[in-house]
Design a binder for these strands. Sequence first.
DNA 1: GACAACCTTTTTTCATTCAATGAAATATGA
DNA 2: TCATATTTCATTGAATGAAAAAAGGTTGTC
Lengths: 395, 395
Amino acid sequence: MSTLIRGNRDLIKEMNRSLLLNIIRREGQLSRKQLTEISGLSVGAVSGIVAELLTNQWIVEIGEGDFTGGRRQTIIRLNSRVGYAIGLKLMEDRAVAAITDFESKILEYCEKPISSTANPQQIVDELALIIQTTLDDSEIEFNKVFGIGIGLAGVIRSKEGVVRYSPFFGWRELPLARMLEEKLHRPVWIDNDVNTLTLTELLFGAGTHHTNFLVITIGRGVGLGVVINNQLYQGINGGAGEIGHTVLYQKTPAPRGSGYQTLEDLAADPAVVANMMAYQPARNLGDVVTLADARDRNAIQVLAESGERIGVGLANVINILNPELVIISGEGTLAGDYRLKPMIAAIQRYVFDGLMDDVQIIIKPTDDKAWARGAASLVISKVFESPIVAASVNS
Amino acid sequence: MSTLIRGNRDLIKEMNRSLLLNIIRREGQLSRKQLTEISGLSVGAVSGIVAELLTNQWIVEIGEGDFTGGRRQTIIRLNSRVGYAIGLKLMEDRAVAAITDFESKILEYCEKPISSTANPQQIVDELALIIQTTLDDSEIEFNKVFGIGIGLAGVIRSKEGVVRYSPFFGWRELPLARMLEEKLHRPVWIDNDVNTLTLTELLFGAGTHHTNFLVITIGRGVGLGVVINNQLYQGINGGAGEIGHTVLYQKTPAPRGSGYQTLEDLAADPAVVANMMAYQPARNLGDVVTLADARDRNAIQVLAESGERIGVGLANVINILNPELVIISGEGTLAGDYRLKPMIAAIQRYVFDGLMDDVQIIIKPTDDKAWARGAASLVISKVFESPIVAASVNS
DNA sequence: GACAACCTTTTTTCATTCAATGAAATATGA
DNA sequence: TCATATTTCATTGAATGAAAAAAGGTTGTC
């Protein structure tokens, strides 16, 4: 059971260590005094734990605070170079890798084509190669790398490190994490790509000070990351957040003759391009946006329709989860207000009554680097994970 | 932060006390030996805590286990009469009240009409009266009642005890819990009625051994209760689970000229009756079911359509939350397979790929007593609440 | 059949450990 | 000297785990 955990002295120790470490991470820099106030721990406990964190180089003293009438506060902050994380985003045709420090700052970045027809072991080999290349370029010692995080589209059983289903590669039940671990002899975690992006927001982004929020990504598909009680929600088998496969809309003809289509079929970038093609040629979303910029009414209409539909899908999720923040993200945001304005209008129209007052909406464009950084956050999230969460995951 | 909590000795004590109490509740009856094994605590710790629970009469020894070669195990179980809970379900035209023991067994039940046009204070007075009547009938001392739980439709900020919005009574931001507390001088908790039903399932029903599940109620409206990580999820402001207000379907004419309608408008019991009326008179869902029983094709069609639409709405939620169990409940289940079969078919059709393998579906009819019992569970849930949850709620 | 010695298992007891606590001492800088 | 921040340290108390005690059946003896 999640919140029914055996307590003992060791757990307390870990809880408080994790508590202080996370407060320091969230606040950026502060003094022992402030830590005492924020954490609620006694001055003695804070003093002891901080001393230990200093010894282990998790944190560093960076100077003194302002004079307030007595002894100055010693300011401490995270030692962002206590370790490093490697993040890998695996896409249909390429993989991108980033090495970040523990504050999610990208120190090295690398991109490489991947053949989606290769077999899993070949791809694992290629991933190992990319990691090696990136490491060599960075001159960071591999043993200071805490672990490797991989983000990819699909249904991922993160806890077990298994790709339950990957649409691009056609994988089912592939133990990707273990395969790469065996090659690299270092911990590997995998998760759905949208979830990794969500973790970045939770740890370092707009979600830092929110307990319940959503990240929706618009691009080739439509994805959703769900944070509940300060934790990424994965679902019972890694399948949470399949907003792209929600069905929405009556339209004929529809697949399977049902009168319904999925949000992804209706409103993701490929749908926008396909709808545009009914009027004139367009290769990708950029083309449609260019046309819209040139005041092409059809392009504007097509983008607005996509936005409106995603807005309806998102409004439904907001009605179910009543979050306090929604972060709109993904490559599809480059369509800008053509798509976002109708989307937000639809959200406002269809969210039930007062629930709209609760929710703040933020737009956050995403590129390959952001995805790689997200994958690295997966590693960092393990470092900062609360022992209570760790305990309940293993129960 | 939910899972970052200050730890100290007191918390350990409470955690382990709560852990044992909840194991005993879940398992029904067991020995200290088994408690040691299940909890992972040391024999000494279990012995001490059990002794304390016995002293405080939370548990009782009920006999000895089978002979297994040595000293027999002493079997203990919850003392269901250590205290009582009063549950109240408030409806448009009436209120029902139940007194239950701590195992959710109804000991006394009472029903009374309510005037929805009365002002809030009058209704609070009436509620107090119902509680008093029920208590008098039961001969249970009021000071052995741990608290009062109220379930009602609408958006409820449970933590603050405030009715954010009640459609039936037109209340907004009404501090209902405080009002009744002032009259009764005993703790009052309130929550959305579907949430109270969900708590019953979590504590005593099909959800006892599940960590992530949904309860959908079909009736005058369509409601949803969400359990995540063994905890009822309320949303940031009590607004979670508004599945009835998700929009789904293109149909003309629709309100606000949008081409969309809410699930509730389309598929709840009143919609079924309204749709039936297009063919012939029907006063309520029962009439429609009677017609269906008489092989009226229109009635069958109307019920199937409702089921299918709810199924689509539910499939969408399953795609988002990937639960392991869905409990279908509410008065609307009395329409039986006419509605449920198309509903389940729709769920199976629209849930994304393998996610359907994870989810078990249970039908659970509901009557007034079940609602009252649910409201009482709200009280019991507070009794058994993990101190970690309690700590994070207050942070 | 009565009774003691023995065996197995469960439960309690108790010395030990160690993290938080909070008061007192110390450090720091104006 | 003063105000504030930080460290030190005796105290507390919950879990731990080993040892003791309890409980109840079995076996052996007379």
